[in-house]
Simulated assay, not measured.
Amino acid sequence: MSKRDSYHHGDLRAALVEAALALIAERGIDALSVAEAARRTGVSAAAPYRHFPTRLALLKAAATRAAELLAEGLREVQEPDPVEALAATARVYVRFVVEHHAGLDLIFAEQLRPLADPALAAAGRAVIDVLLPIALALTGNPVSALDLLEQHIAAAHGYAVLHLSGFARRRTPDVEMVATGAANVSRALAAAFRG
Results as ranks from 00 to 15, higher is better:
Met1Ser: 13
Met1Thr: 15
Lys3Trp: 02
Asp5Trp: 11
Asp5Gln: 10
Ser6Asp: 04
Tyr7Gln: 04
Tyr7Lys: 03
Gly10Gln: 07
Asp11Leu: 15
Asp11Phe: 13
Arg13Cys: 08
Ala14Asn: 15
Ala15Gly: 14
Leu16Phe: 03
Leu16His: 03
Glu18Val: 10
Ala19Leu: 12
Leu21Phe: 06
Leu21Val: 03
Leu21Arg: 03
Ala22Gly: 07
Leu23Ala: 12
Arg27Phe: 15
Ile29Met: 13
Ile29Ser: 11
Ile29Arg: 14
Ala31Glu: 15
Ala35Phe: 06
Ala35Met: 11
Ala38Tyr: 03
Arg40Asp: 08
Thr41Val: 11
Gly42Ile: 10
Gly42Ser: 13
Ser44Ala: 11
Ala45Val: 11
Ala46Tyr: 14
Ala46Lys: 13
Ala47Trp: 02
Pro48Cys: 12
Pro48Asp: 09
Arg50Phe: 08
Arg50Ser: 13
His51Leu: 02
His51Gly: 05
Phe52Thr: 00
Pro53Gly: 09
Pro53Glu: 09
Arg55Gln: 13
Ala57His: 07
Leu58Tyr: 08
Leu58Trp: 06
Leu59Met: 14
Lys60Arg: 14
Lys60Tyr: 06
Arg65Cys: 13
Leu69Gly: 04
Ala71Cys: 09
Ala71Tyr: 04
Glu72Met: 11
Arg75Pro: 08
Glu76Phe: 01
Val77Ile: 06
Val77Phe: 02
Val77Ala: 05
Glu79Pro: 01
Pro82Arg: 07
Val83Phe: 05
Leu86Val: 07
Leu86Gln: 10
Ala87Thr: 01
Ala88Thr: 00
Ala88Ser: 04
Thr89Met: 09
Tyr93Phe: 06
Arg95Asp: 02
Phe96Lys: 03
Val97Ala: 10
Val97His: 03
Glu99Asn: 10
His100Glu: 14
Ala102Glu: 00
Leu106Phe: 01
Phe108Glu: 15
Leu112Met: 05
Arg113Ile: 14
Arg113Tyr: 15
Arg113Ser: 15
Leu115Gln: 08
Asp117His: 13
Asp117Trp: 11
Asp117Thr: 13
Ala119Leu: 15
Ala119Val: 08
Ala119His: 12
Gly124Pro: 01
Gly124Ser: 06
Ala126Lys: 06
Val127Ile: 00
Val127Thr: 02
Asp129Ser: 14
Ala135Val: 04
Ala137Ile: 07
Ala137Lys: 01
Ala137Met: 05
Thr139His: 02
Gly140His: 00
Gly140Ile: 00
Asn141Glu: 12
Leu146Lys: 08
Asp147Gly: 09
Asp147Ile: 07
Asp147Glu: 13
Ala155Asp: 01
His157Tyr: 11
His157Val: 01
Gly158Leu: 11
Leu162Cys: 12
His163Gly: 04
Leu164Ile: 10
Leu164Val: 09
Gly166Leu: 04
Phe167Val: 15
Arg169Thr: 02
Thr172Gln: 06
Met177Leu: 14
Ala179Cys: 03
Gly181Arg: 09
Ala182Tyr: 05
Asn184Ala: 12
Arg187Tyr: 05
Arg187Asp: 04
Leu189His: 00
Phe193Met: 09
Phe193Gly: 06
Phe193Leu: 11
Gly195His: 04
Gly195Tyr: 00
Gly195Ala: 10
